[in-house]
Design a protein around this nucleic acid. Structure first.
Lengths: 378, 378
DNA sequence: CCCGCCGGTCAAATCGATTCGAGCGCGTCG
DNA sequence: CGACGCGCTCGAATCGATTTGACCGGCGGG
């Protein structure tokens, strides 16, 4: 009973077919020379035994590869999926890797400690890395959403000698990086607004670090910015203009963009001093800003212009089309996939920077006359 | 050079520590009795060699389990992620499995053939199943988005003897099922509308099958409905009312809901015959309907009421809050996770049906007076 | 006529760990 | 004083396949 119940192995198939295990293996893998007659004999035996093909585990041990690429999600797994940008990138990644027969394994990153930074006892010395990070059999890990300074996830991976590919972060020693021309992106957006005559420009930023703060960004806070892509987007804006106000959000979500824009547009005491344009670090934030403006009775773009970043589809913003800095999302996923392939092939790590392109929509327009300074500007 | 360059193995650590391989294994796994002194010796040797812990592949082969659960995505990997419902369920699933140390592997389902149902040559006898389906080392596969009759994905999995867990579909022999009380859900929504005085109710449906059609649903088409949950939602509506029109959509997306509602509301020649309420099979479709109504200059809910299904957050619909049949999304993911755990533990397959609950929002209201029949009703 | 090559098959080593049962000191109980 | 039991360690089998090199008969070229 013991073995009759268990799933048949290649050895038993070979036995029944009257050939050696090695020959049976050849019959399935197709590698190496084998007579059609022999193969048929093996296949017939397999059919009789209900053998469903070589066990992947055995193959993997032998080859030393699992064929699995780990994708490390941010601290909250759910949040990663709520972001259309992440989703599109993931999509492209799955696509490229899928054609190579590689699978994508979702790995939650470090789990945030239960209490929100409680100062009692130890300062969370063990950041509770997800068990999968420690044990999963992945050939490569992809850190799609960047690397923080002093990243516990990265540390765990490196301790395990798992090769890493980084997207959107700062360079990691020995790991390929797929970056975006963030700085040029926001700079282009602001230049576009300036070309339309705007000068009082407000900014809605991506999170500066993992603290999930929300509120105005001053010079001190600016210096603390930890996330590379946020830093670059901040810098790009400042290449062109000093924003009249810059508002930090806890995450790239519509509701946070709405809250930020409500603060920015609503709290301005003399209406003539209100910003005439908003540049947001993401489309989701920008969409929130458009909604907030509508709720405040402001017309877009007649009263206030809004520009975003990412170039995602926002069908529900209809009939408006967001002016946005488009990034090649699918291509970013593909680039990450190729970087993974490169690592697997043993190539030298390279650093790719993807281009961005401003695509004007209907949410930006000329600066309103009403608030244009009456005095003849030199 | 050969071995000095290669990653160290447990055997070499044991050798250096002067103990046997079995003892070294004990030092890492923690199973079985071992002296603290011996363990330290092994750990020290490991540190010296740069040994980064037991290779998962070896462990997996021995245990016969990979610790990986495959989640089969629909035909288009990207579409699965665009659906907030799917994302939340996936989120709950990852959460439950993650705490058990199980990983979630994304598997694209059958790849649709290149040409759209070209009738030349063979009728696509080889539906091009994704290579991962054939080769990935998964302990269980989850078909989150149901099973079609004659499902190639399911067939491939069964051929490989991979146990399966089904969500939202029809019962599969020997596999646990996590279902939803779809029928009661749409029935509740329609009853709510009837209680508000509506009688001319239109319906926007989920896809009836994989054909991605869009247009009115007649009795013949109704009979073709292939997807279990769609069938139940259709039935639930008809338990309460015969819709004045039922419009099929190719996918649960805002834009399709918008298109459908534009047809439904716009093409009605005598305005007094226009439906006063729309029940949609999903929140995304319902949101599209709200947008379409607004675009047509109709007020929601004064001129037309809209009810959805799912209960997802729609911050951008603000200030409206969709009336919707809420389903326990996170719980559904958790239920799927538990079903997976059950399969792994060898339990008998069970069938869970999750409850739904109508939560009224601001998008449904009393039937408008204008179009209410002038003659005194009974 | 003989050597060497070639297509096909097989035996055995290998991948890296887990685990069962045996062995071995040593303390304790009878 | 001898036997039993307990705690720790070790040897060896096992998981399931891949792959290298040997082997073997037959055929063509020198």
């Amino acid at each position: 009973m013991g073995r009759s119940n268990a799933r048949p192995t290649l050895a038993r198939v070979a036995e029944l077919a009257g050939v050696s295990v090695s020959t049976a293996s050849l019959a399935f893998s197709g590698a190496g020379p084998i007579t059609a007659e022999t193969r048929d004999k093996v296949l017939a035996a397999a059919g009789e035994l209900g053998y469903s093909g070589p066990n992947p585990l055995g193959r993997q041990l032998r080859s030393g590869r699992s064929g699995i690429v780990g994708v490390v999600l941010g601290d909250q797994p759910g949040r990663a999926f709520r972001d259309p940008v992440a989703v599109k990138v993931l999509d492209g990644l799955v696509d490229v890797l899928g054609t190579e027969g590689l699978g994508v394994l979702l790995i939650p990153g470090v789990r945030a400690p239960a209490g929100p930074r409680s100062t009692d006892g130890e300062p969370a010395p063990a950041p509770a890395v997800d068990p999968l990070l420690e044990t999963a059999a992945v050939d490569v890990a992809v850190l799609v959403w960047g690397v923080l300074t002093d990243d516990a996830t990265l540390a765990a991976l490196q301790r395990r000698d798992v090769p890493v590919v980084v997207g959107e972060g700062s360079r990691v020693e020995g790991a390929p990086l797929v970056a975006l021309d963030d700085r040029s992106g926001t700079a282009q957006a602001v230049r576009h607004l300036k070309d339309l005559g705007h000068s009082r420009i407000a900014e809605i930023t991506l999170p500066l670090d993992a603290d999930e703060r929300s509120g105005p960004v001053d010079a001190a806070r600016l210096a603390q910015a930890d996330r590379t892509s946020t830093r670059h987007r901040l810098a790009g804006v400042r290449d062109e203009v000093e924003p009249v106000i810059s508002w930090e959000t806890p995450a790239s979500l519509v509701e946070h963009g709405r809250d930020a824009a409500t603060e920015i547009l609503g709290a301005w005491v003399p209406e003539t001093e209100r910003p005439t344009a908003i540049v947001a670090h993401s489309d989701l934030l920008a969409a929130g800003a458009v909604i907030a403006a509508r709720e405040l009775g402001l017309r877009v773009p007649e009263d206030v212009s809004v520009a975003g970043f990412d170039g995602i589809d926002l069908p529900w913003l209809s009939p408006d089309v967001l002016t946005s800095v488009h990034q090649p999302l699918q291509a970013k996923g593909a680039a990450l996939g190729n970087a993974v392939l490169g690592v697997l092939a043993g190539d030298e790590p390279t650093c790719t920077t993807l281009p961005v392109e401003l695509v004007p929509g209907t949410t930006t327009g000329p600066v309103p006359d009403v608030v244009r300074p009456a005095d003849p500007q030199d």
